[in-house]
Nucleic acid binder design. Sequence first.
RNA 1: GGAGAGUUGGCAGAGUGGUCGAAUGCGGUAGUCUUGAAAACUAUUGUACCGUAAGGUACCGGGGGUUCGAAUCCCUCACUCUCCGCCA
Length: 423
Amino acid sequence: MLEIAQIRENKEAIIERLKVRNMDAKAQLNRIYDLDAKWRNEKQALEAVLAEQNKVSKSIGQLFKEGKQEEAQAAKARGSELKEKEKSIVDGVNQLADEIQQLLYEIPNVPHPSVPAGNSDEDNEVIAQSGEIPTVGDTWKPHWDLAKEFDLIDFELGVKVTGAGFPFYKGKGARLQRALINFFLDEARDAGYKEIIPPFVVNEASGYGTGQLPDKEGQMYHVTAEDLYLIPTAEVPLTNIFRDEMLKEEQLPVCLTGYTPCFRREAGSYGKDVRGLNRLHQFDKVEIVRVEHPNQSYAVLDQMVAYVQGLLTKLGLPFRILRLCGGDLGFTAALTFDLEVYSAAQDKWLEVSSISNFETYQANRLKLRFKDDDKKKQLAHTLNGSALALPRILAALLENNQDENGIKIPAVLVPYTGFDRID
RNA sequence: GGAGAGUUGGCAGAGUGGUCGAAUGCGGUAGUCUUGAAAACUAUUGUACCGUAAGGUACCGGGGGUUCGAAUCCCUCACUCUCCGCCA
């Protein structure tokens, strides 16, 4: 969330920048601003009462010791009076603080100056494209047909055992899946990321820490008996490692990677977008997460994009890079680049990675700070990106690499799969 | 699932109603000593918020209560550990 100090100081600039998200935040920010002023005012009044209370209470002990009964009794009476006064103020102060907090949670991150205005994914800016778009043959099939033909993925079985969006991967389909995970993890390790296997369920505080709560409450699976949430991405446990942490500057940067299954309810999705592997309730993903010094974070964001680009090049998949417009930008992100691969038989670009700089937005919720060289505490910047999400990679691999009688496995994966063709 | 014991500052660990934001030790920081280091010694060392400042307030697992006054008493919730049971 935004820092209240930012709103005190740069209210108008923030309102202006949030317009890029098609959001008129004027009323909200003005309300926060006013409530904050009121809160500070009332808090001071309250603290003055508490200060006197403390003083009086302390004197009572002393007076009793000195045997000054009458004075002690008088002081007690004054204490009771002050307590009444406290009661009359305290609720109001707390309510103000709660209300401000609640409102702050509802303000999204302020977009980076490079973020273009726009309403939806159609307004995203294509900034690069690479790789050869395959010429689709007459007999080319979408991945769901290929998956069935070669018995790689069983969607119907998933429906029977669990429900739609929970496929079974079988035989070479399963092995290909495992190969991709290992390939991505090894690449990340070579790039300097430390591998982590985190828990796949998190508590409520962690959900708030990275901003899934309260914004995306309905998108996570909630285990009500234990009040835990299935993670929608490894970002949540990996970033929450640093909740309430004070790092030393020399500990930066922190570079982590982790493979996890990801669980998403995807409420509201429908139609051809959810066909086959395009959108699942459970999918596998390797994530990269970084905690950075504020003056490094944008350089690092570019590095992360270049890194993921490298993965796609190695896999031989045509891709393009998008700079998300304000309307498509995630709630907590200041700047996001999406990478999309071209999936031939569907003739579609599929999002396989989303790489974002959150600046201090997550760090402020997380209370993730570091002590700089002058021993001052400041909020760190957090970044993360998919490297990569598997299902759509798999979809593109199957569709783009098909030929008359099977599917060719990219050379970099063969050491991991142990086979070079599916047929 | 059953029984019990816990939760205090970076860590360990005292503290059972006022002088406790909290002993002591370790750790950290600065200094003395030393050619340098170690050891020893001395001093210092929690966090957040409000305030231009002086200063003030809050925090001893969370929430509530008793009291003029709570780390300390009461209620409640959460978590951790130990033993038993079950189990990959």
